[in-house]
Design a protein around this nucleic acid. Sequence first.
RNA 1: GGCUGGGUAGCUCAGUGGCAGAGCAAGCGGCUCAUAAUCGCUAGGUCGUUGGUUCAAAUCCAACCCCAGCUACCA
Length: 546
Amino acid sequence: MSLADRYYITTAIAYANNRPGLHTLFEVIGADVIARWHRMKGDDTRFLTGTDEHSVNIAQRAAELGKAPMEFANENVALFRAAEDALLISPDRFIRTTDPDHVRTAQEMVRRAYANGDIYLGTYEGWYCPAEGFKTASDVVETPNGSQCPNHPTVPLQWLSEHNWFFRLSAYQERLERHFEDHPDFARPDYRRNEMLGFIRGGLEDFSISRAGADWGIPFPIMPDGSSSQRPDGSWDPAAGKIYVWYDALINYVTGAGFPDDPAAFAHWWPADLHVIGKDIARFHTIYWPAMLWSAGLEAPRHVWIHGFLLAQGERMSKSLGNFLDPIDVVKTLGADGARYVTLREVAFDKDTDVSWDSFVRRYNADLANDFGNLLNRTISMANRYFDGERPAVGPEAGLAGVWADTLAVYGDRLEGCLLHDALRALWDVVGAANRLVEAEQPWTLAKAMKAGDEAAGVRLRAVLGDLVEACRLIALAAAPFMPTAAPRALAQLGYEYPYGPDGNGGPALLDELRWGGHAGQAGRLMTAEPLFPRLETEAATPAAG
RNA sequence: GGCUGGGUAGCUCAGUGGCAGAGCAAGCGGCUCAUAAUCGCUAGGUCGUUGGUUCAAAUCCAACCCCAGCUACCA
């Protein structure tokens, strides 16, 4: 990938029925890091995230609370935005499925599929739980008394039969298989790709894309006879029904790229480079979505990354189980940078991971307070003491330079390969190497010799501390996508300007800045050392929620 | 049931034929620049089980046991 490439990255849109947990925002933090990395590299980057607001469940929940669906959605979206702000998430657009342009886009996608002969009227049949909604055949439990909803055994299931529109997914089976074969890295990680490919090979059925009777949702734009469902006064005929789920939710990715209102923007941003999504919706993103796009004459996204879930003692974290972490609590305790680092270091980005409050606090103290924070602190403190605040330059034969070059290569590969936890692990190898260098060189011993008149010791001391300062600069800068405010604070203490904006835009190409000794000739003054990541006392570090 | 991933130190995991590894947690020692920090050392594993191939198996093969995922319309 060359410089000045454009890079369009998205997350799944979250279901706006409640306040978000860290397990929901995990994917958004990860995507934000990747977006910032590309912005800092100089790529023309667009990062899209947002909320999914149409569904019977949301309308129903709103009604229970005596609110209009939109009012209910607005409140929840505000909670999402507050949590994302606290986590320093930097979307270029926060999209809502209730946004007017998204409504137009979804309707246009339906029209295109219709024009292409890919949607037709059919009958959807299935079990319906009045307490919960439609159930799949595999969800329903067979008992001597008949079929039951596993979550609501006392509520009788209804067998519903509904007339609605279907998308001809079956027509795309061969093309999908070929796409997976021609683009082996379309869906990753590999084991998820294999699952999806297996699903395709098992045969594809058409799926329904409209619902009758719902009144909260995007109006289906076509009447059964093929005419427009829009009336002369601009309103939509309720008899046409609403667009159902995937022809609403998935469409946000092209809405966010400018389709169809802004053809120039769309030509620039589409196809998306990366959709970051959870494993629960892999099929819809890697199978339904490409087919829907092809049907509209558009290209499939380039890559879909499928991440796992956060677990608490082996159980999936969820709002309903109550075993989730509140992102606001985590930010309050660890700081925004700490929360981002610890989440992405503790949770593997390619599979499920068990996490706990204790593991988060341990990781924060070990990696941030003790290893990196203290490295920065001791380096600046010594340089201030021995050289009166003048920043020492890198030495002529720094052993760390080689370590750095190797690490940076691995770091970039892992980060661009979505193995964010591995990227951080690699970067922290340099932190360890730098701390070991301090012990090996014992700057305090060199300083005593220098004071006693040993010039060679003075030269060596300057070089050692220069290398340590350089290591701190590079580590902080490389970690900036993960820790967007710690990086500028660290660089300020080291006497460097931070040339990037709050979202990572502007400034020189990151990879140029990340060359060892890149600022060798530049004089500067160090600030007083100030702990970047104050150590947490374990007892004090208990979440408010318990 | 079928397919896929996994089962390695107290915890999280790396390790695809050559003397069992890392980080964290634990114990001991060193150092004093630093946020009771840091550096070194030690301890700790029948590598899920059983059999097989091989001079040599955590690694390859077979069977079995456990955990998780996928096996169609949930946001």
